[in-house]
């Protein structure tokens, strides 16, 4: 493995100026897609109709119980607020380790925090297998100098993050400079070293399914371990049709290269029902190999308590009051 040297970050920082900050623009090609990357189109109406069909699957009894447990195990429990504090992050980590009191319930997959809280989260989660994910690369806009973003990535990994959630430069993408987006993802992947890279496309800003598809293909070819819908800061965040387009891109990539890439749906998933709609989508598009926390994640916070609520209902037949579930 070709770990980037420690020096490279400082070397780049010192080089950061208005001209070079976003990379060597002159050497970038511009255009619809990088050479050899066929622009795969998506029919909007048809993809929405297909996505709607997943929501009409009837999930009952044991299938529901399995879905609730699976969804819980796939959650990236997230706090990304300006008012985050070590205390808040610690509470989030405790919740991640023990979302509910029922011992049959799994813990969540990961916590997702800002880079400055990574070390603290690692400390709290010491000894558990809950991963620590951090949003790097000038989250959520990505509008900073490339060397700053790469430096942030390296320092976040050094602080102990298992997973880096980067944002793509939507400005560059929408300006048609796909090559730059590709290079930046590849560079961030390099900066990640052993850490897993999730590439946030921010589909709400990409606007069209065609763009989502192109960005997915770009990100996977540039080395993404996961592609992720949204930052959660932009509406709409994750939607079923968008996730379907991304899942189809992942499937095609796997077929073409044999490389399995994960999917993370983030933002707007608040109810258990939504969660199992996504599981249906994964089950029927990518198959069983993706139905694990290693390959599918749900970025959420309030979802956890709804999963608990539904879990309780399966046991008792009744909906419990919200006061019975911890708010952390």
């Amino acid at each position: 493995m070709n770990q980037p040297s420690k020096n490279s970050s400082s070397g780049q920082s010192s080089d950061s100026g208005a001209g070079s900050g976003n990379g060597a623009g002159a050497s970038h090609r511009t255009g619809r897609a990088p050479a050899g990357l066929p622009a795969i189109t998506v029919d909007a109406r048809a993809v929405e109709a297909r996505a709607a069909r997943f929501t009409r699957r009837s999930i009952k009894n044991e299938a529901k119980r399995a879905a609730l447990a699976a969804a819980m195990s796939m959650v990236d429990l997230t706090t990304l607020e300006g008012m985050d504090t070590p205390g808040k992050v610690e509470r989030l980590c405790r919740k991640a380790l023990q979302p509910g009191l029922d011992p049959r319930l799994p813990r969540v997959a990961a916590v997702c925090v800002y880079p400055t809280f990574v070390a603290h989260a690692r400390q709290v989660l010491e000894g558990s297998d809950v991963r620590v994910a951090a949003v790097a690369t000038a989250f959520p806009s990505g509008q900073s100098f490339l060397d700053v973003r790469l430096d942030e990535t390296r320092r976040t990994v050094d602080a102990g993050a298992h997973e880096i959630d980067m944002v793509i430069d939507r400005g560059a993408f929408l300006a048609g400079d796909h090559a730059r987006v590709f290079d930046e993802i590849a560079a961030t992947k390099e900066a990640c070293g052993a850490a897993h890279l999730k590439v946030i496309l921010e589909t709400g800003e990409l606007s069209t399914y065609d763009n989502v598809r192109t960005a997915s293909d770009l990100a996977m070819r540039a080395g993404a371990d996961f592609i992720k819908t949204s930052t959660g800061k932009i509406a709409p965040a994750s939607t079923m049709p968008v996730c379907l387009v991304m899942a189809e891109a992942i499937r095609d990539h796997y077929r073409a290269t044999g490389v399995q890439v994960g999917l993370k749906a983030a933002g707007g998933i608040r109810t258990s029902k939504q969660a199992w709609h996504y599981l249906v989508l994964i089950k029927e598009t990518l198959g069983d190999a993706w139905l694990t926390p290693d390959w599918f994640r749900i970025g959420a916070s309030s979802l956890v308590n709804d999963l608990l609520l539904q879990w309780e209902r399966l046991d008792t037949g009744r909906y419990q009051s919200a006061v019975y579930f911890s708010n952390d």
């Binding site: 493995m1 070709n2 770990q3 040297s5 020096n7 490279s8 070397g11 780049q12 080089d15 070079s20 990379g23 060597a24 050497s27 970038h28 090609r29 990088p34 050479a35 050899g36 990357l37 060397d147 790469l150 090559a179 590709f182 290079d183 590849a186 560079a187 992947k189 390099e190 052993a194 070819r221 540039a222 080395g223 796997y254 077929r255 073409a256 290269t257 044999g258 490389v259 399995q260």
Partner: peptide
């Protein structure tokens, strides 16, 4: 740019830094 060079795009075969890990993930039957 110092040691970070913008690479030419080589589609389908990304200039991945952890090629071995990726190869391990590659399955015979896709």
């Amino acid at each position: 740019m110092s040691d970070f060079e913008v690479k030419e795009i080589t589609p389908a075969a990304p200039t991945s830094v952890d090629g071995d890990a990726r190869a391990a993930r590659r399955r015979e039957a896709r």
